[in-house]
Amino acid sequence: MRQSLVSLAVWVLFPLVATAAQDPLPDEVAELYVAYQQAEQSGDLAATLEAADAVYRAARRARVDDVTLGALAENLGYYASASQDFERAYDAWREAAERADDNAMTAGYRWQNASVAAYRLGDHNDARRCAMNASEDFADVEALPAEAMNIAIQAHVFAAQLNAERGSISASGRAAQRALDLFAQVDRPYDRFTALSYFYVGLDDLTDEDFLEAAVKLHIAHDLFRALESGEDEIGTAAALSSYSRRRLLRQISMNSENRRYQARAEEFDDEMEAALAANPLHEQLAHLNPDEEEDEILPDGAIDAVPARRNPPRYPSDAANRGIEGFIALRYTVEADGSTSGVEVIYSAPSGYFDEAAIGAITNWRYEPATIDGVAVRREGVETQFNFELAN
């Protein structure tokens, strides 16, 4: 399966609130503001952008109050974004956000637009920082008005995507959970943002080795991607990770259960998963999309599974460490009858490509006490594991 992160289209948001000036504008600024209003009414986008720029710069020179300057920067940011002048848009939206006067909703809206502009410029690091500011500001609003709900959801999901691209899976899951919390408060049909929210929360559960929750969330994400007719990569990625989560938990059960107890324990787990899915209102809508369940792998009587003898963790790649990039990777491999490993393959990695070589190299050097059947060493296929690459604070 091609390893890729789920992509999210970038958008430009429309004005959320109008901010009034705290003090009267100085005469030279007021004259330029009138010219700006006239250009805006004319519908000439290029002229409106230049007029908005002129009044903003005049206001800076005149040292108007922060709230007023923030509102004028927002005007400039809006028309620069509409003109796809993202360099000017980024500077304006960032200035506007920094002068939001402790208004978390206004700040969240402005940081989100700054994030989009930075993303359009190719600066994903700054886009991520601005997106997290937006997510955190929207999260600080006790009761979001209805007109702000969708913008806040988009901000949370964009922050989740950009953090996942950076390998910051915990921060990604935190932002995505904020989006899921808002979905529970607003009456809206499921859409791409819903699917992405479940995906990133499930990915966070997976890195925490909460395999039951991960299997449930990723199962719903998979069904949502299928219902929305998303790309095969997205559908396949969610399905692969949901199945991986389920197999990892079943393997934990098998490692801690005698074979005769395994089937009962596995059925208990499946009952828990079904109960968790049934409790989610989306599951009933999407139940017809569920693929056939995989058959559980049960070792035959007289079998003993492979047991690790030497498993050194992978080294942190210096390039990723120098760039401050964290990550997660899940892999599958075979334990041969002589206890060596072979056939290591990547199930999923985030971000893609940074940690694959280090993880595969580490597993290649692992050694096991091989699996046996009636005392005879045998090959054990489908062994799976994962690594979290995290930098010290």
Score class of each variant (00 low, 15 high):
5 L>P: 01
7 S>P: 08
13 L>G: 15
15 P>Y: 13
16 L>N: 12
25 L>G: 08
29 V>R: 11
42 S>K: 09
58 A>P: 04
62 A>R: 13
62 A>E: 14
65 D>E: 11
66 D>A: 13
70 G>R: 04
73 A>T: 07
75 N>T: 07
76 L>S: 04
76 L>T: 06
79 Y>L: 11
80 A>D: 05
80 A>I: 04
96 A>K: 09
96 A>E: 05
101 D>Y: 13
102 D>Q: 11
106 T>A: 06
112 Q>F: 11
117 A>P: 01
121 L>W: 00
123 D>N: 12
124 H>S: 08
129 R>G: 05
130 C>I: 00
131 A>W: 05
132 M>L: 14
137 D>T: 00
143 A>T: 15
145 P>W: 13
146 A>K: 13
150 N>L: 15
151 I>Y: 03
154 Q>C: 03
161 Q>S: 10
163 N>M: 09
163 N>Y: 07
163 N>Q: 13
174 R>F: 11
177 Q>G: 12
178 R>Y: 10
180 L>D: 02
182 L>I: 14
189 P>F: 06
199 F>I: 03
203 L>P: 02
205 D>W: 13
205 D>I: 01
211 F>E: 00
214 A>C: 11
225 F>V: 06
227 A>Q: 07
233 D>M: 09
235 I>A: 05
236 G>N: 13
242 S>T: 04
252 Q>N: 12
257 S>V: 00
258 E>L: 13
258 E>V: 12
265 R>P: 01
265 R>K: 10
266 A>I: 01
269 F>H: 04
276 A>I: 02
279 A>Y: 02
280 N>G: 01
290 N>P: 00
295 E>K: 08
298 I>E: 06
304 I>W: 04
304 I>V: 14
306 A>K: 05
307 V>M: 08
319 D>H: 06
325 I>C: 04
328 F>L: 09
334 T>Y: 10
336 E>V: 02
337 A>T: 11
337 A>Y: 08
338 D>G: 07
344 V>G: 02
350 A>M: 05
351 P>C: 04
352 S>T: 15
355 F>E: 06
357 E>D: 02
365 N>A: 12
366 W>H: 15
377 A>F: 05
383 V>K: 12
389 F>H: 02
